[in-house]
Amino acid sequence: MTVPVLILGARSDIARATARAFAAKRHPIQLAARGAEGLAADKADLETRYNVEVTLHDFDALDVAGHEAFVDGLPALPGIAVSAIGLMGEQAENETDPAKAVAVMRSNFEGPAVILGVLANRFVNRGSGTLVGISSVAGDRGRASNYVYGAAKAGFTAFLSGLRNRLAKQNVHVVTVKPGFVNTAMTAHLDLPARLTAEPREVALAIVQAVEKSRNIIYVRPIWRLVMTVICAIPEAVFKKTSI
């Protein structure tokens, strides 16, 4: 079934790879991001490679009041919507600058949760659809190195879990994606271990497969499920003294 796929936060490396992976399966693509006209080359790329229809849509995840109008403005209600919205921020800045912390919290939780909530209601009315939220392993347990980002992702993960529970009987499916480390612009300044680091294309293919197979929660590299199980199992009294 080649339903249209909406990619929210379409400028990120994971979003671009995801758009390609769905377009390769002949889905029409709706790319949504701030300053969408800047995505003209990505639109051309998807059209040229895959011969699919691609539309560009201005979308500000933080303008939650405008989300209903944004969905109204789409050429068709998508069959699949993927939120790749996110902002890593700098933990040190988030600790001292409330405005920066709020931006991270809103970008990783409030914005994505509100737009997926709006789409969820439309999907329920139609009686079908799949919502994909790209969350993070950072949300599995708060750590000193990135707990503001992690807390927002934890909120998003919980939101997706609840949404999935609510919609399970209404033929609307929700996929939670926890990519682990990914080699992207967001992490270009970090020195990441190769075995734990996925390429954006790997994340994209995992997402397409999760949608096709109606998976609930996926870790892109299976080793992350183990890593996070171990991290979550450490008693708090011990955990608080570690620096992971």
């Binding site: 080359a41 990505d42 051309a44 790329d45 040229t48 490679r49």
Partner: peptide, 12 residues
């Protein structure tokens, strides 16, 4: 300079 991010096809 790794150029592999410049990987878009623009027209055919």
């Amino acid at each position: 300079i790794d150029m592999r991010h410049f990987d878009r096809m623009l027209s055919f």
